[in-house]
Design a binder for these strands. Structure first.
Lengths: 309, 309
DNA sequence: CCGATATTGTTGACTCAATCAACATTATCG
DNA sequence: CGATAATGTTGATTGAGTCAACAATATCGG
């Protein structure tokens, strides 16, 4: 994956560029009377109905003294009003006055137009990539608090290709498989779409924070009462979070609902973590056979699970 | 593509998170005696052999007065020494003293370990995504100065899937084509890999700043002296930069080298920008025929170009 | 060569940022 | 109830950031 030193220097490089280039968006917007700190405090005040100085300080990691002085300035300018908390004699409940809110809206508009101007200077392509990357970073940074849950969804356009690419890249990185595997997946998925029958087939994409982190496919087998589980995979960074188990469980349940008597799958002996998953759900190894594929000598395995219980 | 208002608010959200969460990496690292501004100046001094105050000021967008005072402090602490520029009586050539360099190395180590600690707190998955996104943003921000050129490369693992996904998503967005098209591309690419013969087939991925922005495939046709051009596409944000022309030209040249007499292609009448490209390179429309595919009534077109000249 | 103009670097003046320490007031908890 | 913690204010100090004035030097057109 990503080397640790590389990662650190990449982040540092980004940090420098960001401070040098976008940093100007922070401090002292053109006509605005507010400094960066003031703007941040103003923003937090606008977001909450009635909050306390300590709360804002914690949220912005600002010093109590600084918050106190900033709020005193705001109060003198009649941007902020406070009233005593009935349930707490020490704290004061702060809120923006109408003119405080107007000042916030003005600041907001200035910031928006500054960013908008920056983006249009970049051009459509670059700004699109910038925004996409910013979203991705924001998601990671935000995820510290709200650990986003795993969700499953059906296939969307682009998924056939993305599943192909991710599986190919993963197995190339982890086991050195060559592009034969990618072509095989592309073939399987193309066939899956062509022959798709909602009464007998299904597919799920696992997402974590809006990102694809795994997939599983349920397709009809050679006889009407046998289904095949195919193309199970979980992104390395999402492993251990129960994504694989959720996918397999969902697949088994749907296979039962669709009336299949037996669920089979083909895998390779090197895929140990997948095998453990199958065993946990009661799959039994039927037979195995060596084969040479994807540039390696492998041992293919057929597993199956009886659904009649 | 990305909506402008969405883009602005995404960037703002990112900016807030970044200042709140990683901002602490900037100002005043734990044991370090340097403030953020001082650290930035120190960094710039360490990067260049002998530079002037004005140069650093321009680079960091800092005030002359502030630079002057910072440098005066550094000089008093014997971190920086300056000598008169022989060729310029006003400027002074600044450089770090040995103890200045030691201070820089110390700061560097502290920063690295702070970032490293932050990354390990995030966990492998999140930090990987964060770093990837940071690289992507850095590339965009950096690209202002060094306009990265378009490069062509051969196929890598993952490309079959990525080309499939990007083409499917693009034509779904632009023309509303359904997933039948994605399955068709997956099929074509799977076959391409299976039947690949370096003496008769070829493929190129266009990259701009390390990102895939287009592709083209050259495959043998039904008769030995006829080749087919397939799956040409260019990302919207890279259009107008000559990516398409570069791809087509490269493909035509290779077709000549491989000894083909004629290059044919199949496209659809709605793909007007591609058609203009083909016309520019001398392709002529042989025939067209309506068909119903990808959820729409389309007019398929066969174009061809004689390579004997 | 001269004079207008720009660049470089310094200094003073001022406000805000950031941090530490001290303090009064109020909550909370054993 | 008393120790301890949290809240908010104030003073003190250093640096950040900005504006303005100034001196010294470069540059360039005439």
């Amino acid at each position: 994956m990503v080397d640790r030193d590389d990662a650190v220097s990449s982040l540092r490089a980004f940090n420098r560029l960001y401070t040098n280039q976008l940093g100007l968006l922070d401090s002292h917007l053109d006509g605005s009377p507010f400094t960066l700190s003031e703007a941040r405090v103003l923003y937090e005040l606008a977001q909450r109905s009635e909050s306390t100085a300590a709360e804002i300080g914690r949220c912005l990691k600002m010093d109590r003294a600084q918050i106190s002085r900033t709020l005193k300035r705001f109060t003198r300018q009649e941007l902020v009003a406070g009233r005593a908390d009935p349930s707490h004699g020490r704290q004061r409940l702060l809120s923006l006055t109408p003119s405080g809110r107007a000042a916030f809206e003005d600041l907001n508009a200035r910031t928006d137009s500054a960013i908008s101007g920056f983006l249009s200077k970049l051009g459509a392509g670059r700004s699109g990539r910038l925004v996409e990357a910013a979203r991705s970073m924001a998601e990671v940074l935000d995820a510290r608090s709200n650990a986003s849950p795993i969700t499953l969804r059906g296939l969307r356009i682009g998924d056939l290709g993305l599943v192909t690419a991710r599986q190919a890249i993963l197995y190339a990185e982890e086991y050195g498989w060559n592009q034969d595997y990618e072509a095989l997946v592309a073939q399987i998925l193309s066939d899956f779409h062509r022959d798709f029958d909602a009464a007998r087939d299904a597919a799920w994409i696992a997402e974590l924070g809006g990102q694809m982190v795994g997939s599983i496919f349920l397709v009809r087998g050679n006889s009407p009462d046998i289904a095949k589980l195919r193309l199970l995979y979980v992104e390395p960074h999402a492993r251990g979070a129960g994504v694989g188990a959720l996918l397999v469980r969902t697949c088994i349940e749907r296979a039962k609902v669709l009336g299949y008597a037996r669920l089979t799958l083909w895998t390779n002996s090197v895929l140990t973590s997948a095998r453990r998953l199958y065993e946990r759900f009661g799959f039994a190894l039927d037979d195995e056979r060596p084969h040479h594929s994807f540039g390696h000598d492998l041992i293919g395995q057929n597993w199956s699970l009886s659904l009649g219980d």
